[in-house]
């Protein structure tokens, strides 16, 4: 295989990996952010305790989180087929990624929100703030730096998951590493994909930390 073909392959792989990772992270937050907020708000120490909602949601999240990703990947193939029409390729991989990462994100969001000083919440209540005011004007803005740190962790975890999807034809750098490196013993190609993954993780981490430093007004 000549260099140009290899480069094309790797570039396409990288593109697919970024597409899967960022797309899944986005959708995981669409689901996980409200779930995490509901979990923290309905907690017995939250601003609107509701044991039933909290327990039911908590159990669903725990079940999804306890299934190993590689199992989940295969187990929800029918669901993936139903939603995307196929179970192969990077778009199809987004479905199990979101199913795995959504609950993970929910827990991360929950813990970030719970870090908000209860005194500040009480102060808002003393001013006559409604629960919606508190969620959107206190909890989310005050937890923002922690939420950004969480999203950095989420994005790198999802990147790791996405490479696992390579085993079932998920596309991206993971597929290349498995198809060339593992099945065809082309260790050099595998090494290159690993290095590329390391660089991507470093990049996400660095960007995340920079944004956090810039946004957090507690440290400057």
């Amino acid at each position: 295989m000549d260099i140009k073909m290899l480069a094309d392959l790797l570039i396409r792989g990288m593109g697919e990996t970024l597409y899967m990772t960022l797309g899944s992270t986005f959708l995981a937050y669409v689901i996980g952010l409200p779930m995490g907020i509901i979990l923290s708000v309905t907690d017995k120490n939250g601003i609107h305790p509701n044991a039933v909602v909290n327990t039911v949601l908590g159990v669903i999240v725990n079940i999804l989180r306890s299934i190993p990703f590689i199992i989940l990947l295969v187990a929800i193939i029918p669901v993936t087929r139903f939603i995307v029409g196929t179970s192969i390729g990077s778009t199809a991989t987004i479905v199990p990624l979101v199913a795995a990462a959504g609950p993970f994100v929910a827990r991360m969001v929950e813990s970030s929100i719970k870090e908000v000083d209860p005194g500040v919440i009480e102060a808002a209540q003393s001013m006559g703030a409604s629960n919606m005011n508190i969620i959107f004007k206190v909890l989310i803005p005050e937890a923002k730096p922690s939420l950004i740190v969480g999203s950095t962790i989420a994005v790198t975890t999802i990147l790791g998951y996405s490479t696992m999807a390579g085993f079932v034809g998920g596309g991206g750098l993971g597929s290349i590493a498995i198809n060339y490196g593992y099945y065809r013993y082309q260790t050099d190609i595998m090494m290159v994909t690993v290095v590329m993954l390391v660089i991507v993780v470093q990049l996400f981490q660095e960007i995340g930390m920079r944004i956090t430093r810039k946004t957090d007004k507690r440290i400057n």
Partner: peptide, 13 residues
């Protein structure tokens, strides 16, 4: 109005 021992200001504002 209410004020507190720990001030309870919004740290990000």
């Amino acid at each position: 109005g209410m004020i507190f021992q720990g001030f309870n200001l919004l740290e990000q504002r």
